[in-house]
Design a protein around this nucleic acid. Structure first.
Length: 564
RNA sequence: GCGCCCGUAGCUCAGCCGGACAGAGCGGCGGACUUCUAAUCCGCGGGUCGGAGGUUCGAGUCCUCCCGGGCGCGCCA
């Protein structure tokens, strides 16, 4: 990649000038303003302190070295402002970008930074006591996209869903379902949601009378599980493993972990319970592993669970949790460290919660109290791509507010269509070319120098940066960086489409632009692939009538003054 | 009280490891379809980057404090 070549060139220029590398390494930026060159480095500014010389003087030394070095594509180096080194490249570098994109195809934007790693990524893991609620969709979309990002960096990624199917909550679920089955109200601390009424009715319809509480539980649990899998499948999320907590108990994993911790001398008895010296491992205080009633705690089971993930051969564990669980991170990490695993495992990605608003008021969600907005409810009204893109448009460090009225009623305005339309336009051009009998000649026989329009350069610049965007997004566990890129790229493409006709009477220009659009297709499709959003070949024409219906009312008999 | 996260344009949000005049979408105003799908494009207007200090040649980005908001601080899961 050109950035690597330039970095190398700068490194050599530094050596030739007898200067050390800047403390933070050699930074290469794409300047916000075109006049500041194709690439820019603040290396001289960073070096001023250590070298004890004015930044501009250092910049001038580097400028001279770079100009003398004959770096490919490098046309001009200028020293600007306080000591920025601006690199102006010949247009030929963009042609290399195009060739690199089409040569790599589906692999364009991938890297090998995580090659050899086997990463276990656990996400969603909502309790199997009811349908997945709308907020859970955020973790599904984010987790799946992060999995795609890690895979794009060469990791072998295992998607996992943890089913808490062994604790007291399943008892409550059983009792609640059974109560509904008998036409009674659920227990005070049970699940009061309407969905259990419906589930109970179905249970009765399928099994009739005489179902025992435990039979109701098994039936209901399987029913819920199938629902979860189906809902997640609707937004394109599939798990490699649905891990049952029951396994840990049945197999004796939990007992084994307790024995191991005892062996390491990090447990003690107090008040009839068994405690873990978590505070010795950075936790705020010690934690209970076995309650005085003999049952193990959630933490204890979770330590056993994560130990199993390592036992299955994963080299790194990542959990995506809602921010309401952030208090448990240290305890779990302490437990694994006590067992001898590296500090910081599992890595926990905390996501802030989703707020749902309808009719201008916040909708509180709880399976226990009953008011649920299920992911499925949203998917019944909104395209799965819109749903995913909505969840992936924002960083997970901030709480997301989703206005159900906006999402469901104005989905046409969602940016996902803007992006998909760009892809459809590319596909449409390809179809038109085929109809006209125009085929792309080998790229080596095409004069890419004809791609000199600012719009064309803008597209190639965006494509050039794409691999770095993916790498950053993977490192930061931040899929919204890809969303941002894809929107910017779509904007650039729409501008190009408007200003530069691809299929023209000029054969050489047509060839060059066909290759450019092919490169755009590759970049767009790859980015959408990471987001898990479809890249359609065509999009239905919007009916102008529908458009009007959304806007100011057209003249209609009797419509004047009528309430909306 | 302690911990984590957030506070950027009227609204919803981008802004990497600090770099050169702060961005997008929506909304507002005004333009562009005999041309590869106008779910598009172009232009205009709109910001004390919550506040105060500090570090730095340089801070929306780092540090401290304050204000405002969200979420946690169980022998619950």
């Amino acid at each position: 990649m050109i950035a690597d070549d330039l970095r190398t060139a700068i490194r050599e220029a530094l050596r030739a000038a007898g200067l050390p590398e800047p403390p933070g390494g050699i930074v290469l930026d794409v300047p916000k303003q075109r006049e500041h060159g194709d690439w820019s480095t603040p290396a001289a500014l960073a070096l001023a302190r250590v070298a004890g010389r004015p930044p501009r003087e250092i910049a001038q030394r580097l400028q001279a070295e770079l100009e003398a070095a004959g770096v490919p594509h490098l046309a001009r180096v200028e020293v600007a402002g306080p000591g920025h080194l601006n690199l102006h490249l010949a247009p030929s570098w963009l042609h290399d970008v195009l060739r690199a994109v089409v040569a790599a195809g589906e692999r364009y934007g991938t890297g090998d930074a995580l090659a050899g790693q086997r990463i276990n990524l656990e996400f969603v893991s909502a309790n199997p006591t009811g349908p997945l609620h709308a907020g859970g969709g955020r973790w599904a979309a984010v987790g799946d996209a992060i999995a795609n990002l890690l895979a794009a960096q060469g990791a072998q990624v295992h998607r996992e869903y943890y089913l808490n199917d062994a604790g007291a909550q399943l008892d409550r679920f059983r009792d609640s379902l059974y109560a509904r089955y008998r036409g009674e109200a659920p227990p005070e601390d049970g699940y009061h949601g309407q969905y259990l009424v419906e589930m109970a009715a179905r249970l009765r319809a399928e099994r009739g009378d005489g179902v025992t509480p435990d039979e109701a539980l098994e039936w209901g649990y399987r029913h819920v599980l199938a629902g979860l899998e189906q809902d997640l499948g609707r937004i394109g999320v599939h798990f490699d493993t649905w891990f049952s907590e029951r396994t840990l108990h049945e197999r004796g994993d939990v007992a084994e972990v307790l024995a191991l911790l005892d062996e390491r001398g990090v447990t003690y008895e107090k008040d009839g319970a068994k405690w873990f010296r978590a505070s010795d491992f950075g936790d705020q205080r010690d934690r209970v592993l076995v309650k005085s009633d003999g049952a193990t705690t959630y933490l204890c089971n979770d330590i056993a669970y994560h130990r199993d993930k390592f036992a299955r051969g994963h080299t790194h564990l990542i959990d995506i949790w809602g921010a309401d669980h952030h208090g448990q991170v240290r305890s779990l990490q302490a437990g694994l460290e006590a067992l001898g695993y590296p500090p910081g495992e599992p890595e926990v990605v905390l996501g802030q919660l989703v707020r749902l608003v309808r009719g201008g008021k916040e909708v509180r969600l709880s399976k226990r109290t009953g008011d649920i907005i299920a992911l499925a409810d949203i998917l019944d009204e909104v395209d799965a791509d819109v749903t995913r893109m909505t969840f992936l448009a924002q960083g997970i460090d901030s709480a997301q507010t989703i206005d159900l009225d906006v999402v469901t009623e104005q989905s046409m305005e969602n940016p996902v269509y803007y992006v998909q339309y760009a892809h459809a336009r590319i596909a449409s051009i390809a179809r038109r070319a085929q109809e006209a009998g125009v085929a792309r000649r080998p790229v080596t026989q095409v004069d890419l120098g004809l791609l000199a329009h600012p719009r064309e350069e803008e597209l190639l610049r965006a494509l050039a940066v794409y691999p770095a965007v993916v790498a950053e997004a993977a490192t930061a566990r931040a899929p919204q960086k890809v969303t941002t890129w894809v929107r910017d790229f779509a904007r650039a493409f729409h501008g190009f489409y408007r200003d530069c006709r691809v299929l023209t009477g000029d054969d050489a220009l047509t060839q060059a632009r066909l290759w450019l659009t092919e490169a755009c297709r590759v970049g767009l499709a790859n980015a959408l692939g990471i987001l898990g959003v479809h890249a359609p070949e065509e999009m239905a024409r919007l009916d102008p009538q529908d458009e009007d219906a959304q806007g100011p009312a057209p003249a209609r008999p009797g419509a004047a003054g009528a309430p909306a």
